[in-house]
């Protein structure tokens, strides 16, 4: 197993590092499409930490721990911000249900959790020791 840990300040300009690091670590284990999905999920998760847990504060820390093994990439993202409303977890699996013709009612946000869930094989959240812990797993599909 190969493990890497990255800690960033909660600034939007640092977010691309999180995806780039995943691609560097897991580049040999996943297809380009799967790496894009991993990047998408990690970016959305870290964006949520900044926007919701830290309410946009830029001087807080987010830790991203990557663990690549033969069959999976496991990523844990931890912040020390505000806890998540458990009701929000429903958004992970909720259908994005809106009328595309009703322009005034189109959602301008709120996609993040749904995207994270769609892009990863397993997504878990827990609140522990005053911290938010997001665990994201992508399984390696053997090339045939």
């Amino acid at each position: 197993m190969n493990q890497v840990s990255l800690t960033i300040d909660s600034r939007p300009e640092n977010v691309p590092l999180v995806g780039a690091c995943a691609k560097e670590i897991a580049g040999q284990s996943f297809s380009i499409d799967k790496l894009s999905e991993i990047e998408q999920a990690l970016v959305e998760t870290v964006n949520n930490c900044i926007e919701h847990a830290y309410c946009g504060s830029e001087d807080r820390q987010i830790t991203i721990k990557y663990a690549l093994s033969k069959d999976r990439l496991f990523v844990e993202i931890t912040d020390q911000g505000k806890g998540l409303d458990p009701q929000c977890l429903k958004k992970l699996t909720a259908e994005l249900d809106y009328n595309p013709s009703d322009i005034d009612c189109l959602p301008e946000g709120g996609f993040g959790l749904n995207v994270i869930n769609s892009c990863m094989d397993e997504v878990n959240y827990r609140r522990e020791d005053g911290k938010n812990h997001w665990s994201l797993t992508k399984f390696v599909v053997p090339l045939t």
């Binding site: 964006n47 322009i103 189109l106 301008e108 996609f111 993040g112």
Partner: peptide
């Protein structure tokens, strides 16, 4: 190369700003 949900959201905002 990459768009996140904030990027999608701002395109929706633009569409709404233009009106019917």
């Amino acid at each position: 190369d990459f768009i996140d949900s904030s990027g999608i959201g701002c395109l929706v905002t633009c569409l709404k700003l233009m009106g019917p």
